[in-house]
Design a protein around this nucleic acid. Structure first.
Lengths: 231, 231
DNA sequence: ATACTTATGTAAAGCTTGTGTAAATGTTCC
DNA sequence: GGAACATTTACACAAGCTTTACATAAGTAT
């Protein structure tokens, strides 16, 4: 398993140093920010993080605000750490989109176990590899630069086509319902007589078939589509 | 979003009743088991659960053992609940594959928030890919990709055929009435002279028998069908 | 047993509905 | 305004669900 990338956002330097010392030997690569603004920027603008450890009590922009803004664009798992251990804060943090909430002071081994639990769960999801290039048979997909190469030839896909193919490829071998595609790619429920997804799939197929046989996207009537792998 | 299916495993009936009363209005459908053995069986052999709430202190088979055995075949998220709140237990539970661990007594709203956090995370992937497979003798059924493998060969089933076989296999060894099949699969009462179910069963049998003997779907004249298991 | 009745098995025909795709229409962003 | 893309419309087609029809098996009555 690849080294996991963590982002630690906490203004207490003594604490962050301690945590780095404790977690690094366990195989985590850890970046640190000491302010909310800086942490939010790292979380949204730089590389991909597997998990963010977020303190609530931060100067200027507090942890809740960081979480709120992060969730506008990112689904990165967040584990909140804070000295304020009252129930209201816990509930508030979780409701706002945190994955877990651990009050300080905590047992280091419990933190480690909770990090592992979240990372383990994320690894089970196909979307855990959302940012990595994905190769299936003769199709190579690179989310980082929105490019797809099929049998050596680059495909010209639109943004939506790319997103649909991406979701299908992430779930290769598994059925993806048209409703899931609509909700996750187009951001809306699938309405009756809505043919958008069909059209996009049709266009993707046309572009794929130009370079490679056989048909990779299989239809399951009344259910959805499956990206097939033959290896 | 569809109603979430929870499985609550706890021997304290007063507690489970309370929890059901609290969670049901929030849109959860909750099944209960009062023993570890029974809970494990429900979790592995019957329908799909979105989350399992698991007590540690159970007679005969304790929560850790249930979790261990569950994880041999299933990835269903597990939130452990227990009166034993010491760190060692928490860490042990999380290390064994639990997704979260909440010591009793807890604030109901915190439980609710933690359930939501786990469910929210699971919803980020297409709903289909978490479904469990169902294996009986030499037939493997995977709802996630709508495929059935019989004696190593993939079967081409239509959506309705798949739904009927699924219902029969879920209730293997038990009679399923034609009316139940009609209502649950076709969504309508069985009318006089309606032969649809018979036709679908006939088609399923034809496809199954090509690869494996003996007949797996047995008819009970005037009553319904039973999926037979010989092991 | 024998005849009668009723439920089931299944082939084939009929019918409904989802899907593929071209083309027209909207929408968004320079 | 125009380029690029998304969505809707329209229609042909095919998958697959249902009905029909008849043969057969199971149960019931005599």
């Amino acid at each position: 398993m690849k080294t996991k990338q963590l982002l630690l956002i906490d203004d207490d330097i003594e604490f962050t140093d301690l945590l780095i010392q404790y977690l690094s030997p366990q195989g985590y690569q850890i970046d640190v920010s000491h302010t909310g603004v800086c942490g939010l920027q790292k979380a949204t603008n730089s590389k991909h993080y597997d998990l963010i450890l977020l303190d609530v009590m931060l100067p200027q922009m507090d942890g809740f605000e960081v979480l709120k803004r992060l969730r506008l664009s990112h689904h990165t798992p967040v584990l909140m750490l804070t000295a304020k251990g009252d129930d209201f804060d816990k509930i508030f943090g979780l409701e706002m989109g945190a994955d877990d909430y651990l009050p300080k002071p905590f047992n280091h081994r419990e933190l480690s176990a909770r990090i592992k639990a979240i990372v383990r769960r994320m690894d089970m999801l196909p979307s855990s590899s959302v940012h990595q290039t994905l190769t299936l048979d003769d199709v190579v997909m690179s989310p980082s630069n929105q490019s797809v190469i099929c049998a050596g030839k680059a495909l010209e896909l639109t943004g939506t086509e790319f997103a649909i193919l991406h979701l299908l490829m992430l779930n290769h071998g598994n059925l993806v319902s048209k409703n899931d595609l609509s909700e996750k790619v187009l951001g809306r429920k699938l309405l009756a007589f809505d043919r958008s997804i069909d059209m996009h799939v049709s266009n993707i197929r046309r572009k794929l078939v130009q370079h490679s046989q056989p048909e990779k996207i299989k239809t399951h009537r009344g259910a959805g589509y499956i990206y097939m792998v033959y290896k």
